[in-house]
């Protein structure tokens, strides 16, 4: 029963992925209004040459803040888990 449900979920998800791959824009010609604005204006607005760095730290800075929070939380969780594991093994 579980195998049947798993196969059903897998086939449905892959079918949706393939349908999306066929219905998306043609490869190489994406819709690009926002990105054209960023490419044209990033040197005047953020004063650096690298448009990816401008997007990462200026236009979408809140995104990078959340990413840094995720990294910080993961490292804190790893260190906490190892310390708890060490303490438990020392006790027994």
């Amino acid at each position: 029963m579980r195998q049947v449900v798993a196969w059903f979920v897998l086939i449905t998800l892959v079918a949706f992925l393939l349908a999306g791959a066929l219905l998306i824009h043609p490869f190489g010609y994406p819709p690009s209004d926002m990105d054209d604005y960023m490419i044209a204006n990033s040197q005047a607005e953020t004063a650096n040459n690298n448009v990816v760095a401008a997007v990462l730290f200026d236009y979408r800075g809140l995104d990078t803040l959340g990413e840094a929070t995720v990294l910080f939380t993961a490292v804190t969780g790893v260190l906490l888990l190892f310390r708890a594991l060490k303490k438990r093994e020392k006790k027994t």
Binding site: T46, A47, N48, N49, A53, A54, F57, D58
Partner: peptide, 9 residues
């Protein structure tokens, strides 16, 4: 150049 972006890097 770059303002705060090198420091953020």
């Amino acid at each position: 150049t770059g303002g705060v972006i090198p420091l953020m890097n």
